[in-house]
Amino acid sequence: MSAPVSILRTQALTKVFRVGFWGRKVTALDGLDLDVQAGEIFGFLGPNGAGKTTALKILLGLLYPTSGQAWLLDRPIGTVSVRQQMGFLPEAPYFYEYLTAVECLRFYGRLFDLKGPALAARIDHLLQLVGLADARDLPLRKFSKGMLQRIGIAQALINDPQLVILDEPMSGLDPIGRKEVRDIILGLKASGKTVFFSSHILHDAEMLCDRVCILRKGRLVTMGRVSDLLNTASIQSVEIVAEGIGPAELSALQGLARQCVVQGSRVLLECDPAQVDRVLDAIRRGRGGLISLNPHRSSLEDLFIREMGRPATKGVSS
């Protein structure tokens, strides 16, 4: 296997805003070190106000960093030509509402110097991809929030970019829309693109991402492969449901399980994975019947909530 190629890199990226009349300093981003490799789906996670959008805006040239450096496709950010190979969907995107879907995409295409039949074909393909083929001649003024999100994704892909940066791509979408966006993101990965997206919807990130990082108050809290983060940090448990257990064994089970809920003849037990065999033995001894056994894996959401409780540190490595 070839060595991973870095497609997005930041080094101690910091942004300090001055707010209010007296110019009070607020640090929105504090020494961010990131390294996103070509071909992966990278989740940029954190609660609202963690500094995700600030970081994305710096990468896209909308904000200037106070200090630190960043590179996209091995060129420093701010190089206009880098953006030729990038696509960007802002959070809750806004477009010229007097344009129709086709006019809008044509406009963005021209900013990439695309024209003629190639551009027309690309527009048709993208409208099909995002499910807006029927709304091609409708002015954006009449679009719903979900439709605007879709046209936003279409404009981000107009130049067939190598790196796609999406800010909260699932927000404002219904469950079907979210699934469609997930499919688009997976499709991009399948065709060799790199997707870097911010989200606070962890379920989506867990399903999609190869790697994630979690940001809090402008600082990186953790970064790594989803599977590694969940395995190393997870506290697994097993949920067992049984019925008809004799009273003596029942009291023994209460000692073995972390939690034991009795509902009539049915018992719900939550126990440590190491205790499962002993619990099952006790159920058999008490002549009980096993109804179900569910191992509980720690989710990204559990990890997220746990990390939010920890103090943030600078310079976490993957």
């Binding site: 805006k57 896209l60 040239g61 909308l62 206009v80 030509s81 880098v82 953006r83 030729q84 990038m86 960007f88 802002p90 995107p93 806004y94 477009f95 963005y108 900013l111 990439f112 936003g152 404009q155």
Partner: peptide
């Protein structure tokens, strides 16, 4: 946002 982030 969608314009300044394009190659212009």
């Amino acid at each position: 946002y969608t314009i300044v982030s394009k190659p212009i």
